[in-house]
Design a protein around this nucleic acid. Structure first.
Length: 327
DNA sequence: AGGGAGGTCCGCCATA
DNA sequence: TGTATGGCGGACCTCC
């Protein structure tokens, strides 16, 4: 979903990942790689444990945290990677207190996988939408009934609190954070370097390989994923539910139903999101006038595009280009 | 700023 | 019997 709160990154935004005993190594490695290895000089990345020193991972080897919980006191963003089940209650409570304090102070808080349990224990997810590893979603919802758990998405951006689904979705969320802070071009460059998709979206669109099954559908008719890919190639044209359904050889009603079930969003919302993203890229990478960008990305007019930018990105096309365009 | 036109979404229901 | 389809209509949203 669109980001509500715009964070203005400072030079070398400090990111601290909290490595608790039993931390899932890949969940820690994802932010370390994207923010630490690739994100310089925009981000200064470090790892904190409960105390300074070795931290056992869930994978059988230790990582060494150069600092303890006090490092959260100066973080601009705190990342909480997933932890294996069976973490001690006292450990969870201590971590939660430190994370809650960091958030109160104004830090952005991000969880990967089961790291969401630390955020929930800190009370940061109460009344908010959040996600976690699909296998833990039900437990999260049961233990923290005030949290609106959505197991069907890769990540949830609630502004100052962001959560992601299992393991690899941490990569998606970190890239989303980079895109939010520094624009789509830097996020895409880092994704390229890391050899991951710059953006998997529309809920879990990467799983959309199942065909829409309908009695009258010809064998070999496009899958939903193929129709989405086709739509992305034709964003500049008039696309409505009926057109997409025709491409998928389905009726509008059934197509819309499948679409929501498989992607977690509606066709119109998905299209607006894709058009916004395409416009962001054109504003960053081309010199086209705003009106031209609006026409090429299917908004039809600069006014419509401006309204979407305001709603989804809390900015205007011109201001966006000023911030993220080629200098 | 506001009203009309057209599009979208969703519940309902008959049907396959 | 259970599940999915697809047409219909009303509420709502968006654009002009």
């Amino acid at each position: 979903m669109p980001c509500i709160v715009k964070f203005v990154p400072t030079a070398a935004h400090r990111i601290v990942a909290l490595a608790l005993p039993g931390v899932i190594a890949l969940d820690l490695a994802a932010p370390a790689h994207l923010f630490g290895h690739c994100g310089a000089p925009h981000y200064a990345f470090s790892v904190a444990g409960l105390e300074r020193g070795p931290v056992p991972t869930s994978t059988g080897f230790d990582v060494v945290a150069p600092s303890g919980l006090e490092a959260l006191g100066t973080a601009d963003t705190v990342v909480v990677p997933g932890i294996s089940e069976g973490v001690e209650h006292a450990v969870l409570a201590r971590a939660a207190r430190a994370v809650a304090a960091a958030h109160r102070r104004g830090a952005r808080v991000v969880s990967i996988c089961t790291g969401a349990f630390v955020l929930a224990a800190a009370g940061l997810l109460d009344g908010r939408r959040a996600t976690t590893h699909w296998a833990s979603a039900e437990r999260l919802a049961r233990e923290y009934p005030l949290v609106d758990v959505d197991p069907g998405v890769l990540y949830v951006d609630e502004g100052s609190v962001l959560t992601s689904a299992g393991v690899a979705a941490g990569l998606d969320l970190c890239l989303h954070v980079i895109r939010r802070d520094h624009g789509a071009a830097l996020a895409a460059a880092i994704a390229r370097r890391t050899v991951v998709a710059p953006h998997r979206d529309g809920g879990q669109a990467q799983f959309l390989t199942r065909p829409i099954v309908a009695p009258g559908r010809p064998p070999g008719a496009p899958t939903l994923a193929a129709t989405l890919a086709w739509a992305l190639e034709h964003l500049g044209e008039r696309l409505d539910v009926a057109t997409l359904a025709r491409h998928a050889c389905s009726s509008p009603r059934s197509f819309a139903r499948h679409f929501v079930r498989e992607t977690g969003t509606t066709p119109a919302q998905w299209l607006l999101e894709q058009r916004t993203r395409a416009a962001q890229a054109l504003l960053e990478e081309s010199e086209l006038a705003v009106e031209q960008v609006a026409i090429r990305t299917g908004f039809g007019s600069a006014a419509t595009m401006r309204a979407q930018f305001s709603r989804r990105l809390s900015t205007t096309p011109t201001a966006y280009r000023r911030s993220f365009g080629a200098r």
